[in-house]
Design a protein around this nucleic acid. Structure first.
Lengths: 152, 152
DNA sequence: TGCGATTTAATCGTACACGATATATATTTG
DNA sequence: CAAATATATATCGTGTACGATTAAATCGCA
């Protein structure tokens, strides 16, 4: 008979073996990095994503943006209304198909998007402590995982 | 004068180069995988994390759990109250320090945690489309990133 | 042509996250 | 010992996420 090893007297916490848990924590941590960086622009992280997406391609339907961000109208509509109220985007019904709402950046929105893109990504890269190459590799792995999960 | 190349007439969407964006999307996708797996147990993903954490180490203060999950009382208190209302955990003031609320699993909570741990992680692994070794490697990278970000 | 099916947003209710603040208890210190 | 300070939760307001449903416009096809 041997003494119970104290370190394994209780089941080992499996959380550290869960990829979902590291992803969850990394997402929370990333959000905390972004918050003070975006605060000067008066936008949240999901709002930043919307501005970046519209900066790349303007005059898009809500459904297009939703496909890009993997979000639906129940999430996007209130978010987009806040961006509109802040004067950063415009929402207009498509005259050819009145079901569709087309989104475009205002001048102020384009300005914010440009300024944010000038400084924020660099500061985030710095916060990750990774080289650009390391970040790129990890990005590809995580994107591949995301796509696998979405395919289910 | 040359024609503007159509493919680069507009700025390339930088979202795909953002690690934050793949992490964000992977987090959303992971949550969507978990939702139907946890639905039979009547719990959400953060609630599942709490049960797993308590399954590994019971009778913990809220602050301990918060440190483990990187969440504070403003998030945890309502979540814990819901778990208590569902009969899965107990919340008791520590008699030696009345500021502290200690958390423990009920029998029902331990049962749910055990049953979920029996089947959910395997189904999630399957959904990732990764081998255990690949998942482990990615998990380490993401956890390292998370810790780097938290250290700021 | 007309009418049921489909598509697109919006709405509603619930559950996280989190900054700011409040409350109660414990500790420190003068 | 009492007042000041620190600590542990809780509360409140705002902003995502998302399932379920609704409303309006369009499409498809008899």
């Amino acid at each position: 008979m041997t003494k119970t090893p104290p370190a394994s007297a209780r089941p080992v916490d499996p959380l550290d073996d869960f990829l979902c848990f590291s992803l969850y924590g990394a997402g929370l941590a990333m959000n905390r990095i972004y918050k003070p960086l975006l605060e000067p622009f008066g936008i949240t992280y999901p709002q930043y994503l919307v501005l970046v997406a519209l900066h790349a391609r303007d005059d898009r339907p809500v459904s297009d943006l939703g496909e890009r961000l993997q979000l639906e109208s129940n999430t996007l509509t209130p978010l987009l209304k806040r961006l509109e109220a802040a004067g950063l985007i415009e929402r207009r019904r498509d005259s050819r198909d009145e079901r569709v709402v087309r989104l475009s950046l205002t001048v102020a929105g384009r300005d914010i998007a440009g300024k944010a893109l000038d400084c924020v990504p660099g500061e985030v890269l710095e916060a990750t402590g990774l080289t650009s190459a390391e970040l790129d590799t990890l990005n590809r792995s995580v994107a591949k995982l995301r796509d696998s999960l979405l395919r289910r």
